[in-house]
Design a protein around this nucleic acid. Structure first.
Lengths: 337, 337
DNA sequence: ATGAAAGCGCTAACAA
DNA sequence: TTGTTAGCGCTTTCAT
């Protein structure tokens, strides 16, 4: 006695109205070559039958799935989830759905994800990994669906991307720290084989040192895992290096460093100044609150998705390397200039 | 001179090997009715042509898309993103892809999302909204694809769901607080029109009061928005009610209350004890660290997804209302018993 | 303005 | 073991 929910097809609608399926297809797709009266009859039949076009069949026939893929390291990281939120909102606005895949920044998984997305015939992809190894790059170029990087860049700068000017931001923060007299400023970044870390964050940091005539000391650069637990371990290393200021690329890491120092009797910002760079809620919840570079995370995702819609429409982009404005927010974890 | 990336189809493979497309289909789908030697030839041709089955065509023909939908309030909330992580990992394991939709717990958006997912012919859905209004419930029952609730329940308890025993957990925490002499214990939950809040969290709280012979005072129940900013506002209300203990259902909210009190000179846990219930990183990052109910968030998502795979396979479930074990974690925001 | 007909790339009976 | 033949539900020329 189970209710048989047989879906109405375009044939059922056509038959009911007494027109061909081509006509039904036209009204469904907003084609104007339909007389007003027939359009109305079709619409009514659609309503009565509860007809919903089958997106899969449509995708096969039209070669457009109105689905995009989002490849990211980890939804659980607030930075990425905020980017994703921006992507998803704009995607919904343009009637796209998003297939999400977590890769943990593992290059093999990223390649697998990309290939799989290809199989599913997505119309485009937002890629958030920070690492972009050779295999990943070649998987991307084998894609024939447009790809936009959000919060990331490739070394060659060939792929469209949306970011902030990491070089300038990291240089500015470092310079501020130098101006307040710091000699031993730690830089905490992701692994240095990533373009975004190596070519941007680290570069900004080095630029500031160089302009101040200070020597670069690679023992002050920390590039480890990005977990709260890993932060605690790194904090011990930082302490051993007797740094007096820290610039961290991730908020969870920054909070764990902050807590470690305070738990060991250090005063922040008196004994240690600390600046983070994602300005998530973590920065606000810490005590003292963390000074931070403020990246427009949601907007980075939103703009990337908007770019992707254009690309999927075959439009050319004037500018493929978008840099959104960032700001520097001064809070309790740093001293006043 | 653009590289023409024409995809190889099953026909190309069949032709190259000199067999019918049915045979190719068989080897692709692991059907055993293929002679070993032909299988090898087909495999080789597939490799040489770089043939990748088109999932859309396959979906149309087989009526299975190997895609599921995930409907959630907000990826940006760590609780949900952790559930999602569990869902995604198991989904990947079983070769499903997940379409993600944020609803902000807006019932209209949830209905729209559900209908859209229906259109895309997903094989199943994981639903994470905590609100389950009539329209949403009827959209779900119109779905003919299985649905599993993760971290949520419907009033009637008809939909398969994965949770912890919220009643027991909230009762236990409240009882502990009562045992330490508190008379005015605040309960901070989501809006009371949700089953999970009304029928579970609130019930557990009331049970504890009743067993202790204490009167229930609805002025001690707070049900507002779940944002860090909203938390600050609620904290002022809590203070006005002169509560001495707080049990909050969301970590960000709990941290904001904690900070508000401490910023106003209160000592935690001496002047106020506070317990939260999601045990995300926020609880660890707060100072003092927050005591919390520990829900196995990742597992809730993972188990829900596992259930969904069975349902999608047409298997019957022995138990549709899964309650995973929870624990109570005592940290600095509460006094010792 | 409307219809006929040929696919889109694949699965799944059914035959052989 | 392998091939033949219908579809799956829709879009899209091309006629009319």
């Amino acid at each position: 006695m189970a209710e048989q929910k047989k879906n109405a097809t375009i044939y059922d609608v056509a038959e009911k109205v007494g027109v061909s399926l081509a006509t039904v297809s036209r009204v469904v797709n907003g084609n104007n070559n339909v007389r007003q009266t027939t359009r109305e009859k079709v619409l009514q039949a659609i309503d009565e039958l509860g007809y919903q076009p089958n997106a899969v069949a449509r995708g096969l026939a039209s070669k457009k799935t109105t689905t995009i893929g989002v490849v990211m390291p980890d939804v659980t990281n607030v930075f990425y989830s905020e980017l994703t939120r921006g992507v998803d909102d704009i995607a919904q606005m343009y009637q796209y759905d998003a297939l999400l895949t977590n890769t943990d920044d593992d290059q093999d998984r990223a390649v697998t994800a990309l290939k799989n997305l290809l199989t599913k015939q997505v119309d485009g992809i937002i890629y958030m990994g920070t690492k972009l190894s050779k295999p990943v790059m070649s998987a991307i170029s084998a894609l024939r669906a447009p790809v936009v990087l959000a919060g990331s860049v490739d070394h060659a700068g060939q792929l469209p991307s949306v970011n902030i000017d990491y070089v300038a931001a990291f240089e500015a923060v470092t310079t501020n720290l130098i101006n307040r007299g710091h000699q031993r400023i730690a830089l905490v970044i992701g692994s240095t084989d990533r373009a975004i870390d190596q070519d941007f964050r680290l570069l900004g940091y080095k630029n500031a040192l160089e302009k101040a005539g200070m020597a670069f000391d690679d023992r002050l650069v920390f590039a480890k895992a990005r977990t709260y637990a890993a932060g605690t371990i790194q904090a011990a290393d930082l302490m051993a290096q007797e740094v007096t200021a820290v610039l961290a690329y991730d908020d969870e890491l920054a909070v764990s460093i902050l807590n470690y120092y305070q738990d060991h009797g250090y005063k922040v910002p008196d004994d240690l100044e600390i600046v983070t760079s994602n300005n998530t809620n973590y920065a606000l919840m810490a005590r003292p609150e963390l000074s931070s570079i403020d990246q427009p995370k949601y907007d980075i995702g939103a703009v990337a998705m908007r770019m992707l819609t254009k690309l999927m429409n075959g439009e050319k982009l004037d500018d493929t390397q978008i840099k959104l404005p960032y700001t520097l927010i001064s809070r309790g974890s740093t001293r006043k200039n």
